[in-house]
Design a protein around this nucleic acid. Sequence first.
DNA 1: TATTGTTATACTCTATAACTATA
DNA 2: TATAGTTATAGAGTATAACAATA
Lengths: 142, 142
Amino acid sequence: MDVATGLVQLTGLVQTIYARVSERHGLTPVQAKLLCVLLDGPRGMADLAHCFGVEKAALTGLMDRAEKRGLAQRSPVPGDRRALQVTLTDEGHQAATAFHAEVSAELGHLIAPLADDDREHFRSTMAGIIARCRTSSASSRR
Amino acid sequence: MDVATGLVQLTGLVQTIYARVSERHGLTPVQAKLLCVLLDGPRGMADLAHCFGVEKAALTGLMDRAEKRGLAQRSPVPGDRRALQVTLTDEGHQAATAFHAEVSAELGHLIAPLADDDREHFRSTMAGIIARCRTSSASSRR
DNA sequence: TATTGTTATACTCTATAACTATA
DNA sequence: TATAGTTATAGAGTATAACAATA
């Protein structure tokens, strides 16, 4: 198996696990991702749209559904009456924490059979790929 | 960065690349995946649905669109008048080949900066994870 | 003028349930 | 009865374009 095929299949595997855990928590994968992002703190709508790589109009629909399910809420931002801040509700925070823990556990199972040094090598290789990609996309944005 | 986070972020990276290349070829990621699967030969509708992990009704819509775009076609199966066989059109085959080559190249760039032995180690670790997951899901299906 | 967010519209992808035709 | 595929319906997610309100 070549590297490209491996990457595509590994990606499919992770997506499947992510989707399965999402469903188990009554979430769509996108809603789960939204909750996980918000776990790091409140965000503006435009900020979230950029972070998700979608148009702001898509965020409106996403947040409409998240709000209807009682997972997150929009609140005004003092000092800018155009802006809205998105925060997790208590229920959303609970769901996000539980989801995150379960995904981490399931992904952990995936690499559990590896020898300790293989796992560490794999982890640092992934981290390197991600870091390099971040810097290259950051530089191309200048 | 822990392994679970690494897997999720690497998955996001690969998905982004896959989506970008798909768009460059006028395809949705799902249509691109369909073409790639069909590159290995004709398939039945139910077979494709199972392979995609979706209901057969979803395949009907997927194939309606693929057929309308002239990428693939349904044809009768001699010997079973219920069944349909899905094959790539010439245009679909061309699109599939071009897409596959470009995705492989872009994913290759991702791991190009790695040292040769790091890349090989990474590749074989991925292959191992995938193989183990295949056998475990196969055994749980028994 | 630029930015923040919403609305309207259309398309893709998906699930479920009910259906037809064939095995 | 079981299998192969379709239709109808509903909902999620997305893009585009036009809009309102505020900076």
